[in-house]
Design a protein around this nucleic acid. Sequence first.
DNA 1: TTGTTGACTCCCG
DNA 2: CCGGGAGCCAACA
Length: 124
Amino acid sequence: MPAGRPSFYERVYELVREVPRESVVTYGQVALFLGSPAAARAVGYALHFLGHSRRVPWWRVVNARGGISLRGRGANADLQRHLLEREGLRFDAAGRLDLRVDRWWPDDDDQAQPAGRSPRSSAR
DNA sequence: TTGTTGACTCCCG
DNA sequence: CCGGGAGCCAACA
């Protein structure tokens, strides 16, 4: 682990730690919030150091399409999906979440937004 | 300081 | 919808 150096990674952990249950954020979202919109990969790398640890809810971070990538980590991907489903989230046939509903933003108190109704979804 | 790597994203075809 | 390629960033050797 990077250890004792206050860094970008620390902020990633801090932010992810605040993601409420039944909600998720994307790597790009975290990067954007930390001030580096193109550092999504670095965010993923930061979570990589957490390993299987649960001190940070890393499973609440998904890719921009609402799915689980974890490429070379098939087993972990399965674990992530399991944990999210246990919190009540549901994946569609393509194995993706509905970000219009499940996405959470640091500024929002709660997902006060009722499901599927916001016209601004589009994402992109 | 330079080069490599990676739990990402976006653009194209 | 899917696969391939390029771009960006932070940490590390």
